[in-house]
Nucleic acid binder design. Structure first.
Ligand SMILES: [Zn+2]
Ligand SMILES: [Zn+2]
Ligand SMILES: [Zn+2]
Ligand SMILES: [Zn+2]
Lengths: 176, 176
DNA sequence: GTCCTCCATGTGATTATATAACATTACAAA
DNA sequence: TTTGTAATGTTATATAATCACATGGAGGAC
C-alpha cells in the first residue's frame, strides 16, 4: 500500500519492513536522503558507498558483508573484503546504515534524517528486519545504569521473533 | 523477586560487575547454583561444562571462545573449537551463560536462578560487563512490536559506555 | 599549469570467529 | 551383554573481519 497505514497509533514509530509498501520509494528516498545528508555535512558519498547503500536499501533484510561484496563485484567494483567493509563503516559511522549484531550483517537505516537510537525486530522465519526507535535511557536498563553510574554511549537493541506475515501462515519451509 | 533485597529499591536490579564485592563467592555461588539447577532439571553438568562456567565466572568480562579454549587446553581438555563452542552452547541454552553479541564473546549469568531477559552494560575502557534485567515488552520496542504484530521471542540488549570506576579516572591507557 | 597531500579505492594475505562431518568414548536402559 | 544415546574429541572447512601496502584521483599551494 502506497498510502498511509491507518492501523498504527501516532505515538508509535511505524516500522517499515514488515508491512506492505511501495518499495521503489524506499530505495529512491533512501539514496536522496543520504545525498542530502552527505552534501550537508561535507561527506563524500562516493560511488562504492552509494552502491552499497543502494544494495542495502533494496531489501528490508540484513545482508552480510560478503553478500554485499558479491554484488559489488557484479557491478565492477573491487572484490576484496575491505572494499565492502570500508563502505559499510562509512555508512554505519554516518548513520546511513546499521549493523545487526545478532546476525553479523548490515541494513540500511529507515530513519536516516534524525539522530536516533535504533532498535530492530528480526523475523527468524523470513529474515525480514524492521527498524524501530529505542529509548535506552528509559526502562530497566536506564535505571540500572543510573543506579550504578554507568554512562551509556550506544545501545544495541535487537528483538528476535516472528513477523506478522509469517505468524499468519502455517509453519512451512523458510523464506516464504 | 525471589526474596527481599533490603539495600536496593525493588524496581532496579542491582548489577554486579562494576562494584566492589567478594569475588570468591561469585565463582563458588555460580557453580553451586549451576549444579543445583542442572540436577534439578536432569541436565548433565559435565566436567568440561563445569570448567567453562568456572572460567567465565572468574571474571566479570566477556571471554571469546578461543580464549576459553586456551584455558581448557591448559586444564587437559580437548583443544579444538567445538569443545568450547559445545560447552558454551549448553551453558547459554540453559541460562547459565550469555553471549554478548556486540563482542562475539561469552559471560557467566549473574542471575542464574530466575528466568530473565538479560541486558548488559559494557565498559569500552576496561571491558567489564555487568548484567541487568531488561523488560523487552515494555518501552518503545514493545510498543512497536505490538503495533505491527511482531512476536518477540528473545531480545538482545547491550549498552556500551563507561563504567563508574573508569569514569572517575582521568583518561589513561586501557585496562586500568 | 606542476607538485603535493589527503583521502579513497584496490589487492593480497592474514587473523578471528564459528560450524560441518565424522570417529570415539561414557553410560545407562533393555 | 547388547544396544542406543549423549558427550567428547579431532580434522577440516566455512564465515566474518582486519592488516599491510600499492594505486589513483580530487583539491590546494605554489
Ligand atoms: Zn536507523
Ligand atoms: Zn517473517
Ligand atoms: Zn543472566
Ligand atoms: Zn571500566
Amino acid at each position: 500500500m502506497t498510502s498511509g497505514n491507518p492501523t498504527v497509533p501516532e505515538s508509535v514509530t511505524p516500522p517499515v519492513g514488515f508491512t506492505q509498501h511501495d518499495h521503489a520509494t524506499c530505495v529512491v528516498d533512501g539514496l536522496s536522503a543520504a545525498e542530502a545528508r552527505c552534501s550537508g555535512e561535507g561527506l563524500h558519498f562516493t560511488p562504492v558507498r552509494r552502491k552499497v547503500l543502494e544494495i542495502l536499501l533494496q531489501e528490508h533484510r540484513a545482508l552480510g558483508a560478503y553478500v554485499i561484496l558479491d554484488r559489488l563485484r557484479d557491478d565492477g567494483f573491487g572484490s576484496q573484503p575491505p572494499v565492502a567493509y570500508r563502505a559499510l563503516d562509512f555508512l554505519v559511522t554516518n548513520g546511513l546504515a546499521h549493523k545487526i549484531e545478532r546476525l553479523n550483517a548490515f541494513i540500511a537505516c529507515s530513519h536516516p534524517r534524525a539522530r536516533h537510537a535504533p532498535a530492530f525486530m528480526i523475523c527468524r522465519l523470513c529474515d525480514a528486519v524492521a527498524e524501530a526507535q529505542s529509548s535506552p535511557a528509559r526502562g530497566a536498563l536506564g535505571a540500572a545504569a543510573r543506579a550504578t553510574g554507568f554512562l551509556i554511549e550506544r545501545t544495541v537493541v535487537e528483538a528476535e521473533g516472528v513477523c506478522p506475515s509469517c505468524a499468519e501462515k502455517p509453519p512451512e519451509g523458510k523464506r516464504a
